[in-house]
């Protein structure tokens, strides 16, 4: 749906984004992760067509953005550079945008209701809390019911109910075949919402792919008094056993927990602990950041 093709953005001597390529697929929520200053916002602005890449290009449905400008029905954007005048009411702000996009006014009321702002639609944006402004930004992005949604840190300022609402909204859009790209530094939140993940560091992509491939179950922790006999039981079955001096446990890789338990039972080795080791997204993220620093 939306493709970044070798995108690079330089500001004088500073390279904000360098040679970045990835796809935002329809029917999928793609997470865009990276530490502060990694170039996420610049990247999103380029994908939206607000910032021109120094080199590379963005394709929307296979057509370069230069030939097919995004509009409300194709790309919905909620990033920092999209604001609302503090002197206007939420309804006025959305009505103006709807008018510019040639959308009916009824759509404004729909997105106000959808974003939970119907009761405060007449209030000035300047009186809104951060969470309400986030909801307004999301409402504006959803005005045209776009094919692609680009959101920059959308959970900032949202309360737990708001975060759950957003998560449901993003999942529903993906189920309807829409593409969603959402940047976040809340890794635990991203882990619950996204299907694909793009990790950036210092303007470069360090990982792009399915989140499931990034956080597989990766071994089993065991505690036993007979490590030698356990090794004799698991190695022929394809396992590798490594002691962990710090915890006094052993890590068995290459086998899942039931297979380790079965091998131990057959060899009549007593196990005092059997815990699958799952790698959290945070662990992988930090590993990706650290491995390349």
């Amino acid at each position: 749906m939306l493709t970044a093709e070798r995108l690079t953005k330089r500001y004088r001597r500073v390279t904000a984004v360098e040679d970045v390529s990835f796809d935002v697929r329809p029917g999928v929520v793609t997470g865009f992760l990276g530490p502060n200053g990694a170039g996420k916002t610049t990247m999103l602005a380029m994908l939206a067509g607000l910032v021109r890449p120094t080199s590379g290009r963005v394709l929307l449905g296979g057509t370069p953005l230069a030939q097919r400008r995004p509009e409300a029905r194709t790309v919905g954007v909620a990033i920092d550079s999209c604001g609302a005048h503090p002197g206007r009411s939420a309804r006025q702000h959305l009505r103006i945008l709807a008018g510019l996009a040639r959308l009916p006014r009824t759509r404004v009321e729909e997105v106000l209701a959808l974003s939970g702002l119907a009761d405060v639609a007449g209030r000035r944006v300047g009186t809104f809390s951060l969470g309400m402004r986030q909801r307004l930004g999301l409402a504006a992005a959803l005005l045209g019911d776009p094919e692609v949604l680009l959101l920059d840190e959308p959970t900032n300022g949202l309360d737990p109910e708001g975060i759950r609402w957003l998560r449901t909204l993003l999942r529903e859009r993906a189920e309807r075949g829409r593409a969603v790209l959402v940047s976040s530094h809340l890794l635990s939140e991203a882990a619950q919402t996204v299907d694909d993940i793009v990790v950036v560091r210092q303007g470069r992509v360090v990982h792009a792919g399915a989140i499931a491939a990034l956080t597989p179950a990766s071994g089993v922790w065991v505690r036993t008094d007979e490590p030698g006999r356990l090794a004799e039981a698991v190695v022929p079955a394809g396992g590798r056993i490594t002691p962990d001096a710090a915890s006094g446990r052993y890590l068995i890789e290459g086998l899942d927990a039931p297979a380790v338990a079965e091998a131990a039972r057959r060899a009549q080795v007593d196990l005092h602990e059997l815990t699958p080791r799952s790698t959290s997204l945070e662990d992988v993220f930090l590993e990706l950041m650290g491995a390349r620093s």
Binding site: L50, S81, C82, G83, A84, H85, L97, L100, A101, A140
Partner: peptide, 19 residues
Amino acid sequence: AAEHRHRTAAPAVLVSGRG
């Protein structure tokens, strides 16, 4: 200049589909 101060210039470009 307020359009840039309050970041309302970008949304107009984005929703309208014009340059």
